[in-house]
């Protein structure tokens, strides 16, 4: 028990410090996972195998996954700014935290005088850890247990309402899109058909290759605007030269073969 404690406790403190100090939220979430797993091990060392499983399933499994999902939704790589908006906030919060720690430590200092009365007796009397927890849960605390079901239902409904987004404009179906395209053709003469496909060259036919028009200029609509913005668009003029060379080479080979015959 002591050995387990002295292995897990430093790791937990490290994880907690990482949670506060890392500037990227994903690192914070991962160091929190470290803390939670070590906490589960401590539960096991304190003769609470049921809570050990629950801690891993609920905290590291469900809650941290939820945090990570939301981090992915709101953008992973937005580091916290380190500029203080309230003057002296860091110093004051450090002082407050020191005070809190002092208060807690001093109250713990003389609080425990009786010798430990470990879980062994209770576990044997109840016939196991899970049985002991269940007897209390469905006995003395059954009313609180029933209330938690109401809490969970309320939380689920609340999350659904909060995450629900009202449509501000009606959804466009195939019919409406076709109408809009024909209207654009009537007013501005925009081509109503499909967009030109990307260019096909001897060495590349990727979607980043712009197609060339008969006059040698680039057909802008043949490449997605996103690719152009990212700078992923390939140079068609260069590809055209390469293709011409390849064709010339292939032509030479076939000419030579004909001569041999």
């Amino acid at each position: 028990m002591n050995v387990v404690f002295w292995i897990c406790a430093p790791l937990m403190v490290l994880g907690a410090l990482g949670l506060v100090l890392f500037r990227k939220a994903v690192y914070s979430a991962l160091s929190m996972a470290l803390t939670m797993v070590n906490l589960a091990v401590l539960y096991a060392s304190l003769d609470a195998p049921f809570l050990f499983a629950i801690q891993i399933i609920v905290y590291t499994g469900a809650i941290l996954m939820l945090f990570l999902f939301v981090l992915m939704l709101v953008g992973v790589d937005t580091p916290d700014s380190i500029i203080e908006t309230i003057k002296g906030q860091r110093v004051l919060s450090a002082l407050g935290a020191l005070g809190l720690l002092g208060l807690l430590v001093f109250s713990i200092g003389g609080a425990v005088t009786a010798p430990a009365d470990t879980m062994e007796g209770a576990t044997v009397a109840a016939g196991g850890n899970v049985e002991g927890v269940a007897q209390l849960l469905f006995g003395r605390y059954v009313w609180a247990f029933e209330l938690t079901s109401a809490l969970l239902i309320t939380a689920a409904v609340g999350a659904m309402i909060l995450a629900h987004a009202q449509r501000t404009r009606p959804k466009l179906g195939q019919r409406e899109l076709a109408d809009a395209r024909m209207r654009a053709y009537a007013t501005s003469g925009a081509h109503p058909g499909s967009l030109p496909n990307s260019g096909v060259f001897a060495t590349s036919n990727s979607i980043a290759t712009p197609a060339l028009l008969p006059d040698g200029s680039i057909a802008q609509e043949s490449v997605s605007a996103t690719l152009t913005e990212r700078g992923a668009q390939l140079d068609s003029a260069q590809l055209k030269e390469l293709t011409a060379e390849t064709f010339a080479g292939a032509q030479r080979v076939s000419d030579e073969e004909e001569e041999e015959l």
Binding site: M119, E120, A122, N129, G132, V133, Y141
Partner: peptide
């Protein structure tokens, strides 16, 4: 504390 007092209330 549950471990110290040898009861399941803290775990619940």
């Amino acid at each position: 504390f549950a471990w110290h007092h040898g009861s399941f209330d803290g775990q619940v």
